[in-house]
Design a protein around this nucleic acid. Structure first.
Lengths: 123, 123
DNA sequence: CCTATTGTTCAATAAATGTTGAACTCTTGG
DNA sequence: CCAAGAGTTCAACATTTATTGAACAATAGG
Protein backbone atom coordinates (compact mmCIF):
# COMPACT_ATOMS: atom_id res chain seq x y z
CA UNK A 1 0.00 0.00 0.00
CA UNK A 2 1.18 3.53 -0.76
CA UNK A 3 2.65 5.48 2.10
CA UNK A 4 1.22 8.93 1.50
CA UNK A 5 -2.30 9.89 0.59
CA UNK A 6 -1.15 11.74 -2.48
CA UNK A 7 0.41 8.56 -3.80
CA UNK A 8 -2.72 6.62 -2.99
CA UNK A 9 -4.76 9.14 -4.95
CA UNK A 10 -2.63 9.76 -7.96
CA UNK A 11 -0.19 6.88 -7.99
CA UNK A 12 2.63 9.38 -7.75
CA UNK A 13 3.82 12.14 -5.49
CA UNK A 14 4.52 14.38 -8.48
CA UNK A 15 2.57 17.63 -8.14
CA UNK A 16 2.47 17.98 -11.91
CA UNK A 17 0.35 14.87 -12.15
CA UNK A 18 -2.20 16.12 -9.65
CA UNK A 19 -5.74 16.69 -10.83
CA UNK A 20 -5.01 14.94 -14.09
CA UNK A 21 -5.99 11.35 -13.73
CA UNK A 22 -6.82 9.29 -10.67
CA UNK A 23 -5.32 5.86 -10.15
CA UNK A 24 -7.61 2.94 -10.86
CA UNK A 25 -6.46 -0.68 -10.91
CA UNK A 26 -7.45 -2.50 -14.06
CA UNK A 27 -9.63 -5.56 -13.82
CA UNK A 28 -6.88 -8.16 -13.61
CA UNK A 29 -5.20 -6.28 -10.81
CA UNK A 30 -8.25 -6.07 -8.60
CA UNK A 31 -7.35 -7.94 -5.43
CA UNK A 32 -9.85 -9.95 -3.41
CA UNK A 33 -8.37 -8.94 -0.07
CA UNK A 34 -8.56 -5.29 -1.02
CA UNK A 35 -12.17 -5.59 -2.19
CA UNK A 36 -13.33 -7.47 0.90
CA UNK A 37 -11.45 -5.04 3.07
CA UNK A 38 -13.05 -2.11 1.28
CA UNK A 39 -16.49 -3.66 1.75
CA UNK A 40 -15.91 -4.60 5.38
CA UNK A 41 -16.52 -1.03 6.48
CA UNK A 42 -20.19 -0.09 7.03
CA UNK A 43 -19.75 3.47 5.80
CA UNK A 44 -18.14 2.28 2.59
CA UNK A 45 -20.84 -0.32 2.08
CA UNK A 46 -23.49 2.34 2.40
CA UNK A 47 -21.66 4.45 -0.13
CA UNK A 48 -21.51 1.53 -2.54
CA UNK A 49 -25.20 0.75 -1.99
CA UNK A 50 -26.10 4.38 -2.58
CA UNK A 51 -24.03 4.61 -5.74
CA UNK A 52 -25.55 1.40 -7.00
CA UNK A 53 -28.95 2.97 -6.58
CA UNK A 54 -28.26 6.35 -8.14
CA UNK A 55 -25.66 5.25 -10.68
CA UNK A 56 -23.26 8.12 -10.20
CA UNK A 57 -22.86 10.81 -7.59
CA UNK A 58 -20.53 13.57 -6.45
CA UNK A 59 -18.42 13.57 -3.35
CA UNK A 60 -20.38 16.41 -1.82
CA UNK A 61 -23.73 14.69 -2.22
CA UNK A 62 -22.48 11.93 0.00
CA UNK A 63 -21.70 14.12 2.97
CA UNK A 64 -24.46 12.49 5.02
CA UNK A 65 -22.38 9.33 5.09
CA UNK A 66 -19.33 10.91 6.67
CA UNK A 67 -17.33 14.10 7.10
CA UNK A 68 -15.83 15.67 3.99
CA UNK A 69 -12.28 14.74 4.87
CA UNK A 70 -13.18 11.23 5.86
CA UNK A 71 -15.17 10.81 2.68
CA UNK A 72 -12.08 11.55 0.64
CA UNK A 73 -10.35 8.80 2.55
CA UNK A 74 -13.12 6.22 2.13
CA UNK A 75 -13.60 7.03 -1.54
CA UNK A 76 -9.88 6.68 -2.14
CA UNK A 77 -10.05 3.32 -0.41
CA UNK A 78 -12.89 2.14 -2.63
CA UNK A 79 -11.30 3.46 -5.79
CA UNK A 80 -7.89 2.04 -4.99
CA UNK A 81 -9.49 -1.36 -4.34
CA UNK A 82 -11.15 -1.19 -7.74
CA UNK A 83 -14.68 -1.05 -6.38
CA UNK A 84 -15.46 2.43 -7.68
CA UNK A 85 -14.48 4.66 -10.53
CA UNK A 86 -13.95 8.39 -10.07
CA UNK A 87 -14.08 10.72 -12.99
CA UNK A 88 -13.31 14.40 -12.84
CA UNK A 89 -16.01 16.78 -13.96
CA UNK A 90 -14.82 20.32 -13.51
CA UNK A 91 -14.51 21.07 -9.83
CA UNK A 92 -16.41 17.94 -8.93
CA UNK A 93 -15.62 14.25 -8.83
CA UNK A 94 -18.27 11.86 -9.99
CA UNK A 95 -18.14 8.42 -8.45
CA UNK A 96 -19.71 5.20 -9.69
CA UNK A 97 -19.47 1.52 -8.85
CA UNK A 98 -17.44 -0.67 -11.19
CA UNK A 99 -20.17 -3.28 -10.98
CA UNK A 100 -19.34 -4.96 -14.28
CA UNK A 101 -15.64 -5.15 -13.55
CA UNK A 102 -16.16 -6.59 -10.09
CA UNK A 103 -18.69 -9.06 -11.42
CA UNK A 104 -16.29 -10.17 -14.09
CA UNK A 105 -13.48 -10.61 -11.61
CA UNK A 106 -15.45 -12.01 -8.66
CA UNK A 107 -18.82 -13.29 -9.91
CA UNK A 108 -21.63 -13.02 -7.40
CA UNK A 109 -19.66 -11.20 -4.76
CA UNK A 110 -21.04 -7.71 -5.11
CA UNK A 111 -24.67 -8.81 -5.54
CA UNK A 112 -24.38 -10.91 -2.38
CA UNK A 113 -22.99 -8.01 -0.39
CA UNK A 114 -25.61 -5.60 -1.72
CA UNK A 115 -28.38 -8.05 -0.89
CA UNK A 116 -27.09 -8.24 2.65
CA UNK A 117 -26.87 -4.46 2.92
CA UNK A 118 -30.44 -4.02 1.67
CA UNK A 119 -31.68 -6.70 4.05
CA UNK A 120 -30.26 -4.81 6.98
CA UNK A 121 -31.16 -1.31 5.87
CA UNK A 122 -34.28 -1.16 3.66
CA UNK A 123 -34.08 1.59 1.07
CA UNK B 1 -14.74 -6.42 20.05
CA UNK B 2 -13.48 -8.04 23.22
CA UNK B 3 -10.38 -6.58 24.81
CA UNK B 4 -8.52 -9.69 25.89
CA UNK B 5 -7.99 -12.90 23.96
CA UNK B 6 -9.50 -14.96 26.73
CA UNK B 7 -12.71 -13.00 26.42
CA UNK B 8 -12.65 -13.38 22.67
CA UNK B 9 -12.28 -17.13 23.06
CA UNK B 10 -14.66 -17.90 25.84
CA UNK B 11 -16.88 -14.86 26.05
CA UNK B 12 -15.74 -14.35 29.60
CA UNK B 13 -12.54 -13.82 31.54
CA UNK B 14 -13.62 -16.33 34.17
CA UNK B 15 -11.02 -19.13 34.36
CA UNK B 16 -13.73 -21.53 35.52
CA UNK B 17 -15.37 -21.26 32.14
CA UNK B 18 -12.18 -22.11 30.27
CA UNK B 19 -12.12 -25.24 28.15
CA UNK B 20 -15.83 -25.73 28.61
CA UNK B 21 -17.57 -24.14 25.69
CA UNK B 22 -16.30 -21.75 23.06
CA UNK B 23 -18.22 -18.64 22.12
CA UNK B 24 -20.12 -18.78 18.85
CA UNK B 25 -22.53 -16.10 17.68
CA UNK B 26 -25.89 -17.47 16.69
CA UNK B 27 -27.15 -16.91 13.18
CA UNK B 28 -29.04 -13.69 13.79
CA UNK B 29 -26.04 -12.14 15.47
CA UNK B 30 -23.62 -12.80 12.64
CA UNK B 31 -22.45 -9.41 11.43
CA UNK B 32 -21.61 -8.60 7.83
CA UNK B 33 -18.67 -6.37 8.73
CA UNK B 34 -17.20 -9.10 10.91
CA UNK B 35 -17.63 -11.74 8.21
CA UNK B 36 -16.13 -9.61 5.44
CA UNK B 37 -13.33 -8.61 7.76
CA UNK B 38 -12.68 -12.25 8.63
CA UNK B 39 -12.60 -13.15 4.95
CA UNK B 40 -10.44 -10.20 3.93
CA UNK B 41 -7.33 -11.94 5.23
CA UNK B 42 -5.66 -14.34 2.76
CA UNK B 43 -4.57 -16.79 5.46
CA UNK B 44 -8.08 -16.98 6.85
CA UNK B 45 -9.53 -17.43 3.38
CA UNK B 46 -7.20 -20.34 2.75
CA UNK B 47 -8.25 -21.88 6.04
CA UNK B 48 -11.91 -21.53 5.09
CA UNK B 49 -11.26 -22.98 1.64
CA UNK B 50 -9.37 -25.89 3.16
CA UNK B 51 -12.09 -26.59 5.71
CA UNK B 52 -14.72 -26.43 3.01
CA UNK B 53 -12.83 -29.10 1.14
CA UNK B 54 -12.14 -31.49 4.01
CA UNK B 55 -15.26 -30.77 6.07
CA UNK B 56 -13.62 -30.66 9.47
CA UNK B 57 -10.04 -30.43 10.64
CA UNK B 58 -7.94 -29.94 13.72
CA UNK B 59 -5.88 -26.90 14.57
CA UNK B 60 -2.62 -28.78 14.28
CA UNK B 61 -3.34 -30.06 10.80
CA UNK B 62 -3.50 -26.48 9.63
CA UNK B 63 0.02 -25.57 10.74
CA UNK B 64 1.13 -25.12 7.11
CA UNK B 65 -1.11 -22.04 6.94
CA UNK B 66 0.51 -20.20 9.80
CA UNK B 67 2.38 -20.56 13.08
CA UNK B 68 0.62 -22.32 15.93
CA UNK B 69 0.10 -19.17 17.93
CA UNK B 70 -1.08 -17.19 14.97
CA UNK B 71 -3.43 -19.96 13.99
CA UNK B 72 -5.15 -19.67 17.35
CA UNK B 73 -5.64 -16.00 16.61
CA UNK B 74 -7.00 -16.46 13.10
CA UNK B 75 -9.28 -19.31 14.14
CA UNK B 76 -10.66 -17.23 16.99
CA UNK B 77 -11.30 -14.46 14.50
CA UNK B 78 -13.21 -16.77 12.17
CA UNK B 79 -15.17 -18.38 14.97
CA UNK B 80 -16.03 -15.08 16.61
CA UNK B 81 -17.28 -13.76 13.28
CA UNK B 82 -19.52 -16.80 12.94
CA UNK B 83 -17.71 -18.20 9.92
CA UNK B 84 -16.48 -21.36 11.62
CA UNK B 85 -17.56 -23.66 14.40
CA UNK B 86 -15.07 -25.17 16.82
CA UNK B 87 -15.94 -28.24 18.81
CA UNK B 88 -13.76 -29.76 21.47
CA UNK B 89 -12.71 -33.34 20.99
CA UNK B 90 -10.46 -34.35 23.84
CA UNK B 91 -7.23 -32.46 23.59
CA UNK B 92 -8.02 -31.34 20.08
CA UNK B 93 -10.30 -28.74 18.57
CA UNK B 94 -12.13 -29.67 15.42
CA UNK B 95 -13.01 -26.78 13.17
CA UNK B 96 -15.60 -26.61 10.42
CA UNK B 97 -17.20 -23.91 8.28
CA UNK B 98 -20.72 -22.81 9.22
CA UNK B 99 -21.61 -22.86 5.54
CA UNK B 100 -25.32 -23.30 6.07
CA UNK B 101 -25.58 -20.58 8.67
CA UNK B 102 -23.64 -18.11 6.56
CA UNK B 103 -25.67 -18.99 3.50
CA UNK B 104 -28.90 -18.47 5.41
CA UNK B 105 -27.72 -15.12 6.73
CA UNK B 106 -25.90 -13.80 3.64
CA UNK B 107 -27.01 -15.81 0.61
CA UNK B 108 -24.38 -16.21 -2.08
CA UNK B 109 -21.60 -14.55 -0.16
CA UNK B 110 -19.51 -17.54 0.85
CA UNK B 111 -19.85 -19.33 -2.51
CA UNK B 112 -18.70 -16.17 -4.28
CA UNK B 113 -15.66 -15.82 -2.05
CA UNK B 114 -14.78 -19.50 -2.38
CA UNK B 115 -15.10 -19.32 -6.15
CA UNK B 116 -12.68 -16.41 -6.14
CA UNK B 117 -10.25 -18.24 -3.89
CA UNK B 118 -10.31 -21.34 -6.09
CA UNK B 119 -9.85 -19.24 -9.21
CA UNK B 120 -6.68 -17.77 -7.78
CA UNK B 121 -5.26 -20.91 -6.21
CA UNK B 122 -6.33 -24.13 -7.98
CA UNK B 123 -6.71 -27.05 -5.57
C1' DC C 1 -10.24 39.17 -11.45
C1' DC C 2 -12.77 37.61 -7.01
C1' DT C 3 -14.95 34.58 -4.56
C1' DA C 4 -17.65 30.68 -3.40
C1' DT C 5 -17.68 25.83 -4.08
C1' DT C 6 -15.55 21.36 -4.36
C1' DG C 7 -12.54 18.39 -2.83
C1' DT C 8 -7.68 17.27 -1.28
C1' DT C 9 -3.49 17.32 1.63
C1' DC C 10 -1.20 17.12 5.93
C1' DA C 11 -0.21 16.02 10.68
C1' DA C 12 -1.99 14.10 14.55
C1' DT C 13 -4.32 10.69 17.22
C1' DA C 14 -6.69 6.56 19.14
C1' DA C 15 -7.75 2.08 18.10
C1' DA C 16 -7.37 -2.37 15.79
C1' DT C 17 -4.51 -5.75 13.26
C1' DG C 18 -1.21 -9.49 12.31
C1' DT C 19 2.71 -11.56 14.12
C1' DT C 20 6.07 -13.51 17.36
C1' DG C 21 8.23 -16.41 21.44
C1' DA C 22 7.93 -17.98 26.01
C1' DA C 23 5.16 -19.89 29.41
C1' DC C 24 1.13 -22.09 30.42
C1' DT C 25 -3.12 -25.61 30.70
C1' DC C 26 -5.51 -29.56 29.45
C1' DT C 27 -5.81 -34.22 27.76
C1' DT C 28 -4.21 -38.70 26.64
C1' DG C 29 -1.33 -42.89 26.28
C1' DG C 30 2.02 -45.57 28.56
C1' DC D 1 1.43 -40.80 37.87
C1' DC D 2 4.17 -38.68 34.07
C1' DA D 3 5.63 -37.23 29.78
C1' DA D 4 4.28 -35.90 25.23
C1' DG D 5 0.99 -33.61 22.32
C1' DA D 6 -2.53 -30.08 21.37
C1' DG D 7 -3.69 -25.61 21.77
C1' DT D 8 -4.02 -21.29 24.47
C1' DT D 9 -2.56 -17.14 26.98
C1' DC D 10 0.20 -13.19 27.56
C1' DA D 11 3.01 -9.29 26.57
C1' DA D 12 5.25 -7.02 23.09
C1' DC D 13 5.88 -5.19 18.54
C1' DA D 14 5.44 -2.76 14.08
C1' DT D 15 1.59 -1.65 10.81
C1' DT D 16 -2.50 -0.28 9.29
C1' DT D 17 -6.96 1.88 10.35
C1' DA D 18 -10.55 5.34 10.84
C1' DT D 19 -11.11 9.87 12.19
C1' DT D 20 -10.39 14.82 12.93
C1' DG D 21 -9.40 20.06 11.93
C1' DA D 22 -6.78 23.42 9.65
C1' DA D 23 -4.74 24.76 5.51
C1' DC D 24 -4.50 24.23 0.75
C1' DA D 25 -5.57 23.83 -4.66
C1' DA D 26 -8.55 23.88 -8.58
C1' DT D 27 -12.58 25.24 -10.93
C1' DA D 28 -16.86 27.88 -12.06
C1' DG D 29 -19.63 31.84 -12.13
C1' DG D 30 -20.43 36.61 -11.47
Amino acid sequence: MSSTLIELCYGSAYPSIMAKELLHPDIDQIDLSAVLDALSDPTRREIVAHLTEVGEDSCGSMNPFSSKTNLTYHLARLREAGVTRTRIDGARRLISVRAGDIEQRFPGLLPAVLTAVRAKEPS
